[in-house]
Each structure stands twice: as structure tokens, then as C-alpha cells.
Design a protein around this nucleic acid. Structure first.
Lengths: 130, 130
DNA sequence: CATTTGTTACGAAAATATTCGTAGATCAAT
DNA sequence: ATTGATCTACGAATATTTTCGTAACAAATG
């Protein structure tokens, strides 16, 4: 369906995707400046990575102006789901709720977030009663 | 602290850890036979991987008999947490509860598991009220 | 005891991922 | 128009991960 999707992003590629999902879109320099804060690599390294990602179909780009503008070509949600599935299977022995417990345990969540989760749990239960 | 821990497991290494966490311990052949079901690699490949993992301190081994017996040297929980943290930061933009919702959404969880999560949520809320 | 089978050790090839140097293009400012 | 800054393209070097062939040895089998 989508023109590309078979390539799973590497570690570095995920970092770039994360940035673009947040920003919506951006130039190589935009991305690089954010990346620099947490990572130590040169500009052309980021450039090359983003070019590769474009080839793979992970990024779209607008080349109408000299400075190209990139955005993610795969959705955050589907990528999240794909990574979660693999993680659940390999490390959590297939148990999604085990992952949930572990995630809740060591991260501080606001009351609002907890409520959202509870509400969601209720919805799931309602569905299952049917 | 621990004799080793600085080396984060690679993709393949995680698969082996997952197997050993389940089994408790096992020989190369034990692990390989399970691995084979989902992966296509030779016996010596698995052997080599486990030897490397032992060097890195990811596995312990008992060499008292000819056929060595391995077990995980790092805990499932700490590894899970480490992976979750990275995933939350790069892909879920720092929101643990976003990860939780996504995980609950697309995986079927039993009523029992859902109850456990709810109970856990309540405990967290109690703590926060203090 | 010779042969087959199963095991570890080891080195190195192959495959992937990451990094960067350099060249050429474009554009803005002198 | 020359200079300087910034950008893309591209190739290649590095680094990392994965894979496997081969040798050596031990144990079991005939």
C-alpha cells in the first residue's frame, strides 16, 4: 500500500524520526541542531542519514527550494506498535500487561494520565463483556 | 557494582537473553533449537554469539562438563527498564503513559491482567496522595 | 581401535550501520 | 564578479553485528 514500509528504522534513524514527528517537518540543519544536544556527530552525518532514510522511504522531502524540507513518511503510531510488539515478544515473553506494569512502575505519571489509562481500561473491559 | 553491565545487548543477543530468562539456563544446543524456530542461522552462529555474550558479561556459564551450561547474567527487569526508557524517550516523546495506552490498545489482555493493572494504578495513586 | 557424532575455540568473511571528507552548486553580500 | 557561507551529493573509511568454515578435542558407537 504505502510506497515503502518494509525497512525497519535503525537506532539512529529512530532518533531522527522522533524529532520529525515532534516538529512536523524540518531541514537537515533543524534536525541536526536538536540531535547535537544528545549526540555527537557532524552535520554531514545527519545529512547522509536523512538521505538514506529518504531512499528507504522513511522520510518524504520537498526539494522545491535549495534547502530541502523533510518530514516523516511513516506514522508514529505504527512505528510505536511495531517496536512494542517486538519488545513484548522478545523481552516481555509475550505479555503486554507485564510491559505496562514495568512502564508504570518506574516512570512518574500525572494523575491526569493515570485517569486516562483507567478510563481506557474500562473501555476495554466493556468491549470484552460483549 | 556488578561485574558487567555497560554493554547493552544487541538485537540478536536480546533474543538469546529472552530464551534464557524463560528457561533459567541451557546449553548452546538448547538455545539454538528454540532460536531456530523463529530464525534461520547455523549452530556455530548461536555458539559464537553466546561466547561473545559471555565475554561481555551478559551470560554466566558453567564449564565443569564438556557441554557448557549458560544462564543470563543480567536481570530481565533491569533490561526491560533500560529498553523501555530509551523507547519512551525516543519514540514516545517522554510519555510513559502514552506507551501504556498504545500497548494496551493492540494487545489482547485477560481480565485478570487488566485487574492487576488497575490495582497497580490504585497503588500509585495512593502513594501520590501522600 | 577406528569412525562417527557432538562440542568448543577461533579467525575471518559478510552484512549493516555510522561517520565524515571533499567536491560542486546556489545564494547573499560585498 | 569575487568572496564566503551554506547546502546537497557522493564515495569511502570505520565501526559494529552477524554469520559461518575449519580445526581440535572428547565421547559414544560399532
Amino acid at each position: 500500500m504505502s510506497t515503502a514500509k518494509n525497512n525497519k528504522p535503525t537506532e539512529s534513524e529512530l532518533e531522527i524520526l522522533g524529532i520529525l514527528w515532534e516538529k512536523g517537518s524540518g531541514t537537515v540543519r533543524d534536525v541536526h541542531e536538536i540531535l547535537e544536544k544528545s549526540k555527537d556527530a557532524g552535520y554531514t552525518t545527519t545529512l547522509k542519514l536523512m538521505q538514506i532514510m529518504h531512499e528507504k522511504g522513511l522520510l518524504k522531502r520537498d526539494t522545491s527550494s535549495k534547502t530541502h524540507v523533510y518530514e516523516a513518511a511513516i506514522s508514529r503510531e505504527s512505528t510505536q506498535q511495531q517496536l512494542l510488539n517486538k519488545m513484548i515478544n522478545t523481552v516481555f515473553n509475550g505479555s503486554a500487561s507485564q510491559l505496562v506494569l514495568q512502564a508504570l512502575g518506574n516512570h512518574h505519571s500525572s494523575q491526569e494520565e493515570l485517569d486516562k489509562i483507567k478510563q481506557y481500561l474500562n473501555e476495554i473491559e466493556q468491549q470484552q463483556k460483549k
